[in-house]
Design a protein around this nucleic acid. Structure first.
Lengths: 142, 142
DNA sequence: GTTGACCCTATAGTAGCTTCACGGTGTGCA
DNA sequence: TGCACACCGTGAAGCTACTATAGGGTCAAC
C-alpha cells in the first residue's frame, strides 16, 4: 500500500502521515525499490487509531501514552483510564472557560445594540475600560 | 516609561510587548539616548486595550480590525459589532464542539469502568473501532 | 569601579499540521 | 521510444501567540 492509499483510507493527508512518522507515532514502513513507503494492514490500523484519538482532541503526548500501553496486551489498562479521565477533565475545564467568555462577550455586545460612531460605541468603550488580570493559560485544547 | 513599567501596568511580559510591536499591534515608541523604548500614556492605553481583547480570546487579526476602526473616531462602528458577533459565534461553535466531544469521551470511558488487561480494555477497543471522518477543523479558539 | 537590575537584538522552540520548492518514479498512450 | 501526468521523495518554511535563550549594552547606586 502506498502512502496515498493509506492516507485515503484514514481520511487524512499524505503530509500528515509523513509527519506522524517523523513524530514517532507511526513506525517507518518498508520501502520499495523506488524508495516509496510500503504500508501493510497494521499501519492502516495504527493510523486509524491515531486519527480517532485526534478526533477526540487528544494531544500527541496523550496518544503516545495510549499507544505505548496498547502495545502491551497483557498489561493493566489503568493508565489508559487515567489518560482518559484527565483528558475529559481538560475538555470540561475548557468548556467552563469558554462559557465564561461567552457571557463576557454577550455583556459587552449589549453595550452597543445599534450602529453609532466609533466614539460612542459601547463595545470599544468597554474594551478600553475592562480590567483583565494576568493571562489565564489554558490546556492544549486552545 | 520604560518597557518593564509598561508591561507591569498591563500585566503582561516585556517579551509580549516587543512581540506586539513586531506584529504591528503596538506602534514603535520613541527611543532614549541609550536606545531604550520610551512609552507614553497612549501606549499604555493601547496595550491595555489589546490585552483586554486577548482576554476575550480574540485573534490578532480580529484585534487588528478593531484597532483600525477605533483609530477613526467619527466612523460608523458597525464593523466592530460585526467582528464581535462573529467572534461570539466562534466561541459558541467551539462550545458545541467540545460538548459533543465530552459526550463521546464519556461514552467511551463507560466501556471500561474498572481496570482490566489492555487486551480487554473497552476504551482501547473503542479507539480501534471508531470511524472518525475527515478532520473537523476548528477556529482559532483551539 | 563594580554590582545588579534592567534593556537591546536575534534566534529558536512550542503543537499539529500545511505549503512550497525541487526533483525522482511509474504507468499509459501515441 | 518518447512524453505526459499522477504520484512519490526530501527538506525547509509558514501558521498562532507567545516564550525562552544567548550574548551583549545601559544606568543608577554603593
Amino acid at each position: 500500500m502506498k502512502i496515498g492509499d493509506l492516507a485515503r483510507a484514514a481520511q487524512c493527508t499524505v503530509e500528515t502521515v509523513r509527519y506522524y512518522e517523523r513524530e514517532g507515532l507511526l513506525p517507518p514502513p518498508a520501502r520499495t525499490a523506488g524508495n516509496y513507503r510500503d504500508y501493510g494492514q497494521e499501519h492502516a490500523e495504527r493510523l486509524r487509531f491515531i486519527r480517532n484519538c485526534r478526533a477526540l482532541d487528544m494531544s500527541h503526548g496523550e496518544i503516545r501514552s495510549v499507544l505505548a500501553l496498547a502495545d502491551q496486551p497483557s498489561a493493566c489498562c489503568g493508565a489508559v483510564n487515567d489518560v482518559f479521565d484527565q483528558h475529559i477533565a481538560h475538555v470540561a475545564e475548557r468548556i467552563r472557560e469558554l462559557e465564561h467568555l461567552r457571557r463576557s462577550l454577550l455583556t459587552l455586545r449589549e453595550r452597543c445594540r445599534r450602529e453609532r460612531t466609533v466614539e460612542d460605541c459601547g463595545i470599544l468603550q468597554g474594551l478600553a475600560e475592562m480590567e483583565s488580570g494576568p493571562p489565564g493559560r489554558h490546556t492544549h485544547l486552545g
